[in-house]
């Protein structure tokens, strides 16, 4: 199963301040450890929201808003995707993640959906068929 470790943005990351050498080293060390164990699938840092934009649908109306966005803690600054055997292993790897920010930091861990995760059921079979039908 796959998990995404989401790194939340901070005042610094939103201001475009590059991480310190210590922080970079800690992050590289951690990701090397993931790679050595064969569980690292993908990892990327995201540029500040000032360089991004949002598209919003409200009441059938579509609005485009340019960044930056104010609610820093809700923003994403990067992610790491790991492939592990079970949830416990994901918990253990997440626990080893260094604080990704120079000051207060936060990560959020989410499991990636796979159809197989639902197990076998009639509803899922229908979902698969729907999927196949839509693709045609």
């Amino acid at each position: 199963m796959r998990f995404m470790i989401i790194v939340k943005a901070s005042k610094d990351s939103e201001a475009g301040v590059m991480p310190s050498q210590d922080l970079l080293t800690a992050m590289v060390d951690y990701h090397e450890e993931l790679a050595k164990a064969g569980v690292l699938l993908d990892a990327n840092g995201l540029q500040r929201s000032a360089k991004g934009w949002r598209i919003n649908w409200t009441g059938g109306k579509k609005t485009v808003t340019d960044g930056p966005f104010a609610e820093t803690k809700e923003l994403i600054a990067g992610y790491t995707i790991i492939q592990v055997k079970n949830r416990e292993e994901a918990i253990e790897w997440a626990n080893r993640f260094p604080n990704p920010q120079m000051e207060d930091g936060e990560i959020e861990i989410r499991q990636v959906f796979e159809l197989e995760d639902f197990g076998e059921s009639e509803a899922i079979d229908r979902f698969r068929e729907l999927d196949t039908a839509l693709d045609k």
């Binding site: 790679a35 050595k36 164990a37 064969g38 492939q83 055997k85």
Partner: peptide, 23 residues
């Protein structure tokens, strides 16, 4: 499909060991 879930797991394990070996 319908096989024990452990069987497809073998693919994941082979890939994990392969990535480990690459290091």
């Amino acid at each position: 499909r319908g096989d024990d879930w452990m069987r497809p797991q073998l693919c994941q394990e082979a890939m994990r060991l392969g990535r480990m070996l690459a290091g």
